[in-house]
Design a protein around this nucleic acid. Structure first.
Lengths: 249, 249
DNA sequence: ACAAAAGTGTTACGCCTACACCCATGA
DNA sequence: TCATGGGTGTAGGCGTAACACTTTTGT
């Protein structure tokens, strides 16, 4: 059971991270199974009073997924009173997840800052649970177990934000391996957007963005014609992230 | 000097609102002149522990501008430690803006939630200062006085967000009078975007959005040919706000 | 009458969509 | 050899940018 110094923490403020990964054509997120409870939670944490909120979010990502310098974006503050459940703190004490003397701290009204991260599935070697949880696992967003509090809403908003951002920004770096085929990139888009795209038009458009570098290698060993492998032009990718794609005005 | 019950407030959490208005072809915001200080501030406030954050932002808007049911959007949480200035609370006490016993409350580390609102300039009859301020005024964003803390950054981010949103959503309702000419609407766009637009193409595009209703009235009394007055189709406008304009995927 | 803004139309170009065809590979 | 996915090309339509001309009004 964890005992920490709540004096050093910003009161009533927490962080929740939706950590997206892509594997086997499915969009997955990292979630934690709470000790002694049949509920799961998004990776999160609190904010030390002398730390930047964004930096604390990066800390969460580092501790749970072992990754640093990853795309991580604040997308919303969840500030409704109703997101606090009266007996949530009590349950945590009952199940010996937290020490009884911390109950007051956990029972105060919390607002939480939502972040989402895009990470490469295979680079997360050992998802690490925190003191409240017995395991940390990748789960497909289409078959999620029951989540605590408003974590399902937080995920939904993160996903919606991601979908919207696809119109202005590239995606893929940090989410795909260094080398990937056009089809794999397309599968990522189709999964995030939850719709099918035309293969040929997708290719043309992607190439027109000028952020891909064709390597001379091909993926072999799988069935059918060996596809070309691409990598991202990191410089141009970053430029596209900053300036965005098509603004109409 | 204001004395309020800080026990009822969410600790270390504030709200700041960028309230945009449009007048004489200039984008303006409401700012407050602080008592006994030569500094200005965005309208803001604190969050009662039993109130939704969004609702408290709406309260700020209501108290300062006297408006309700107005477009109001949360756009960012400003959570850097550096945004807190050591002597800000001390100055407030020194200048008798707040009671000395509130100094501890004001000296804690704060994070602030940024909101922006679009309001009709002429509907704000009497901008109302709060207990920290001696006046509340419209000021053009191009000639702003010195603002406290990171309020200039907050404004910049609000403006950037607004610019970006113009690609997906309509603007104008709540910012223009009920009836307006095409040129006035274009002037609003040009002001927000900080660039000139082609008159004829602008008209065509706006009409294609199908959110405008031409009235049979014309603006008279001014020089030159009397222009047609339009109003927004409120139902279709709202639909466009929800579904957005052009998504490329 | 004239200056200045309002209203309307046209052309050219580029982008996006919706397709069909051939190629390469493992089974 | 054949099923399956990879790679390339093209015709048509739509939207946008870049334009010129006429109309109306107050001065």
């Amino acid at each position: 059971m964890q005992n920490f110094d709540v004096e050093k923490l910003h009161p009533g403020l927490s962080i929740d991270c939706v950590i997206f990964g892509f594997h086997e054509n499915e969009l997955k997120i990292l979630i934690l199974k709470l000790k002694n409870l049949n509920k799961w939670a998004l990776p999160g944490g609190f904010v030390e009073v002398d730390k930047d909120v964004d930096a604390e979010a990066a800390e969460v990502l580092k501790r749970r997924a072992g990754l640093e310098n990853i795309f991580l974006r604040q997308f919303y503050l969840f500030g409704d009173v109703a997101r606090n459940e009266n007996d949530h703190a009590r349950k945590m004490v009952d199940q010996e997840v937290i020490a009884p003397e911390l109950r007051d701290w956990f029972e105060q009204r919390f607002v939480t800052v939502g972040y989402y991260a895009l990470v490469e599935y295979s680079k997360v070697k050992a998802p690490t649970p925190d003191y409240t949880s017995e395991s940390c696992e990748w789960r497909s967003i289409s078959e999620l177990p029951s989540l605590i509090l408003d974590h399902r809403d937080i995920l939904a908003r993160a996903h919606a934000t991601l979908k919207k951002e696809l119109n202005n920004q590239p995606i893929g770096m940090n989410l795909l391996p260094d080398h990937f085929t056009m089809s794999e990139l397309q599968a990522l888009y189709e999964t995030v957007l939850e719709k099918k795209l035309d293969r040929r038009n997708f290719r043309r458009r992607m190439l027109s963005y000028d952020i891909l570098i064709p390597t001379n290698k091909r993926r072999t060993g799988v069935a059918h014609k060996a596809p070309m492998l691409y990598e991202f032009d990191r410089k141009k990718y970053q430029e596209a992230m900053v300036s965005g794609f098509r603004s109409t005005w």
